[in-house]
Nucleic acid binder design. Structure first.
Length: 354
DNA sequence: AAATCGTGGCC
DNA sequence: TGGCCAAGATT
């Protein structure tokens, strides 16, 4: 079988030439020129960035990456952090299981691997929060091993390059095979980042800039005039709407009543306001008997698979009321709204300006 | 293996 | 404005 990558200037070489010229400077990235002169990436920073980048844009990750690496410069530092501090630092970034697994992983690497990340794809795959993509990303980017990254960018680029009509996610194995055939033995780390950069900038979902693409000539979807239509995707299910109540109580000395949510499920491990269940018609479940006042305005928030409308109830927290099961009194000085997941912060904002 | 799991930006 | 989309993992 003819290998497209064996052409005079192979496909992987074409995109590496482009990457050498256009690679974006990213906080966790070793530039192609630095890499060429022997600079090696820090596996801790590559791992951290890749976990943060799961289903998350570069723009959203940048500040979080800086705060994490400033506060916890090494995997050992992160491993010895308090759970609540890590969850608070992750607040707002979403998909909070990532933060829980991040901490688990840091502790496994520190306690069982002497602080050194595994250097093989299979070794990395065993760690919490590291799946097929992230294992390949760390292998290639941090260790320059010829593993194939398959993320949304690579799926889109391959679907277009080879004009694949089969819809995602079913077409994933086929796209993985095509991507693997292109992965070069030389500079696999730069190559992996090059394809993803291409997908993130030129080969964008809606209006790809085919005119300036390093793969404009070999791209089959472009020849067929179908680039912008691919990849096809199986339609998504509609989102139902759920409702709920949250209860915000502050004492005259400034203390707040909050709860630490259980580790499993939505917003697991995060700080939040006590509240009802979220359903079509939830029963009010105030955390203690009081004259709760309805703030009036509603918090509207959309999660991955449902819309939420939250009714915000407020009252004064009695000075000597001891919090029930799982509820916490937190001093004003120890409470930062930025520690809350976004939906809970919206409820806070509704009460206290902003 | 289909469902679950956040959030912000974009058009 | 509402759906789509983002360097996916877990169960």
């Amino acid at each position: 079988m003819r290998d497209l990558n064996d052409d005079a200037l192979g496909l992987s070489d074409q995109i590496l030439v482009w990457y050498d010229e256009h690679a974006r400077a990213l906080p966790w990235r070793v530039s192609p020129s630095d890499r060429a002169s022997g600079v090696t990436p820090d596996p801790y920073r590559i791992w951290l960035s890749e976990v943060m980048l799961q289903q998350t844009t570069v723009a959203a990750v940048k500040d979080y990456f800086h705060r994490f690496t400033h506060r916890w410069p090494t995997v050992q530092d992160l491993a010895s952090a308090e759970d609540g501090d890590v969850m608070g630092e992750w607040a707002g970034l979403g998909y909070y299981a990532r933060a829980r697994n991040l901490l688990k992983c840091a502790r496994v690497v520190t306690d069982e691997y002497a602080g050194v990340f595994p250097t093989t794809h299979d070794g990395l795959l065993k760690l919490p929060g590291i799946g097929p993509y992230t294992a390949a990303a760390i292998s290639s980017i941090a260790y320059d091993l010829p593993e194939t990254v398959l993320d949304g960018n690579v799926e889109r680029v391959m679907a277009r390059l080879y004009n694949i009509d089969a819809p995602l996610p079913g077409a994933k194995p086929q796209l993985k095979t095509l991507a693997a055939a292109l992965t070069p033995d030389r500079r696999p780390g730069d190559y992996a980042q090059a394809v993803m950069d291409l997908g993130a900038t030129i080969c964008s979902p809606k209006s790809p800039a085919c005119g300036i693409c390093p793969w404009r000539d070999p791209c089959l979807a472009r020849s067929a005039g179908k680039a912008a239509e691919l990849p096809k995707k199986t339609p998504k299910k509609p989102k139902p709407t759920r409702r709920g109540h949250v209860y915000l109580a502050q004492a005259s000395n400034g203390e707040w009543l909050l709860e630490r949510r259980p580790d499993k499920g939505l917003l697991g491990g995060m700080l939040g306001w006590p509240g009802s269940e979220w359903s079509e018609a939830p029963e009010p479940t105030p955390p203690f008997a009081a004259n709760w006042r309805d703030l009036g305005g509603e918090v509207r928030h959309t999660f991955t698979h449902f819309h939420l409308i939250l009714q915000v109830m407020v009252t004064e927290l009695p000075p000597h009321h001891s919090p029930a099961d799982g509820h916490l009194r937190i001093a004003a000085n120890d409470f930062r709204p930025s520690d809350l997941p976004t939906v809970m912060r919206k409820a806070f904002d509704l009460w206290h300006g902003q």
